[in-house]
Design a protein around this nucleic acid. Sequence first.
DNA 1: CTTCAGACTTGCCGCGATGCAA
DNA 2: TTGCATCGCGGCAAGTCTGAAG
Length: 796
Amino acid sequence: MAPSRATSKRARVADDSSSEDEPIAPKRTRTARTAAAAPAAAAAAAASSSSAADAPAPSKPTRKRAAKKLAAASDSEDEPLAAAPPPAKRGRKAAAVKDEPSSSAASSSSTAAAPKRRGRPPSASSSPASSPAPTTARGKGKAKAKAPAASAAVKKEEAANGDGDGDGGSGSDDDADGEFKWWKQENPLGDGRTKWTTLSHNGVYFPPAYVPHGVQMKYNGKPIKLGPAAEEVATFFAGVVGTTWAENPTFVSNFFEDWTDVIKRTEPATCPIKEFAKCDFTPLVDYLAAEKEKKKAMTKADKDAAKKAKQEIDDKYGWALVDGRKEKVGNFRVEPPGLFRGRGAHPKTGKLKKRLQPEDITINISKDSPVPAAPAGHKWKDVVHENEVTWLASWTENVNGQPKYVFLSAASSWKGMSDFKKFEKARELKKHVARIRREYTAMLKDRETEKRQLATALYFIDKLALRAGNEKGEDEADTVGCCSLRYEHVTLKEGNKVVFDFLGKDSIRYYNEVVVDAQVHKNLKLFKKDHSDGDDLFDRITTTSLNKHLTSLMPGLTAKVFRTYNASFTFQQELESTPADGSVADKELAYNRANRQVAVLCNHQRAVPPTHDAQLGKLKDKIRALKYQRREAKKLMLQLDPKLKKSRKDLTEPESDLDDEWIAEYLESEKVKDKEKLQKKLEKDNAEREAEGKPLLTLKELEDAAAKRAARDPTLEQLEKKVAKLGDQIHAAKTQLVDKDENKTTALSTSKINYIDPRITAAWCRKHDVPIEKMFPRTLREKFKWAMDAEADWEF
DNA sequence: CTTCAGACTTGCCGCGATGCAA
DNA sequence: TTGCATCGCGGCAAGTCTGAAG
């Protein structure tokens, strides 16, 4: 059975978030998340879910896709519908269109609210004037190699909020503090197509060349000398030894295949390496461990030097000028070579990701900006000037042939604008959603199977926040979303119950038992009829056709907008239960709970932190200790003034959760701790006394002194205060406990970063007087600068 | 159409910085 | 002051969706 990997922190424990039911986020009982590594995945799935895994489900057994479209074309509307309606010829799309004249033609320019056109993107006036200056400044900075004057200066300017030397493009459109506030512009979203007029930057940063270490791994028990190329790849593998990657047969065989290729090319024909089983990477593993130690043991000076070097790189490559304005670059570091860590049962996992050369990289930059110099002796693959895209550099990754890009950071104007657009689009959906729901509810009974499928899929996307579910290739992990659900992923139960069990994005398991609309249940039964494992559940629709339909209902509407809308809407609703007169901790809890609702809705999971149980235990003990102290304090109060027994019920109430055994243990441990403390104090004091020539103390003396202090009777008033304080502490700790436990397997950050309109948070903080820093860490505050001014009464 | 390439968002994880108790 | 847990951030894989090409 399960190969009991210690590393399987991915296994989840049942989560009974059975707190409430409300329409949008139906109750859910999730179980385990499958492991990423293939063998573990299969095992885990088999172990945890009897239903899904026993069936030949997980790995595509007899998958017959492609049959899809043919079926739709020929056999057409033959399916007898459970209800009654006679088959009908299709092609009557008119029915779907509804009153609005579709507007699909104009829809492509997805400009949210303001259809008003403007000639230029954000600031018409600033760029021509400001761009030449910074460009030259940049050029100089580059020439100086070290300490790029320009960027450093700008940096300081930003931090100190002082005035710069004209760099940074604080043109007339910008705010007084020199920062570009695009959201205060008249038309913050520009014309939607052209992204920039001028663009300059310093290109990309390459990882250092490989330095061979010469450590010899063993083959067949004998040390073996490898050239740099083969050694490097072997060392990549050594890096995963001890993790689940190294246990994954696909990973191992892909690695070995690519490695032997390298060996064939670069090693003499005498190189004996033929079988993975005979490879012993231990020397390399040890070497890596030693290197890690070395790094950890670096002196402070070395660490500082490394930090400084890193800072210089950041200063040089970390900034770009867009229309004369300084913007932060995101991933300017070229991805280093390594073994591809494809998640889930990815057929290509473990393959060698090659080292990129400047000759692989395309640079996108203004015509009039200096092209960043490629590393000595090299040149760029290409230099282009495409101002309808936002990437600064791009290349093709060799494992999957995917394009990769260098973009600006999340805090940049471009990303901010597109976030803003996204949330405005979701808010627009709010106005249409009632109508759209009515429409698809009616369409659930349409005579055409295709329409029924469309409506049913849409029902899931809306109610369950499923992803669209594009088709995937054979050379990718087998994961699905709404449109790509297969027969085996959906099980029908009595009482209109439906059980979903499939692997979604990142091979995260989605398990959900939901009671659905009777018609939906009926439809599913119909779609499944005469089908079997491996067949598409929705065989007449694709994400494209679904989105096309959605766009006809509302311009720019796509499946993912529903996720954004439902997440933000749910969040705002859940926040309403924030206790107006609660403490900040109470409010935080309410916030996190709302956040959690959304995370559960979107199925955002995380591995249980390895120390989770221990943490909980500690917290519980802390609470008990506090309770015990409170009990003692109350006792004292009653001793001091026995009359309180009558008037103060609260003092006589027993503390829950305290048993004698625990108390004894607690007291014992406290005793030990106290003793240790005193012992330390004794040593310290005596050292002092010795120096001053005073007589030394004994432990006994100290103990007596401490006992005397403890015996001093506090006043009633002091006790009262103490009890109150303890009460607060207990409450806070309990709150923390609940929060922590509920968070065990739920990742809040993804929804916070991508799905919840930040203006809801900003408004909530204002309304409830909670500092925004409590809810948004620095990077989020930067990313959501545009949302920070939301008034307390702002509504999503 | 379908497929494919391209561009951009979403998502989980590992690691380093940071804060905190010992 | 050091060891250690937490947290925030960046890395990069994996989605969505659009538009061009076959």
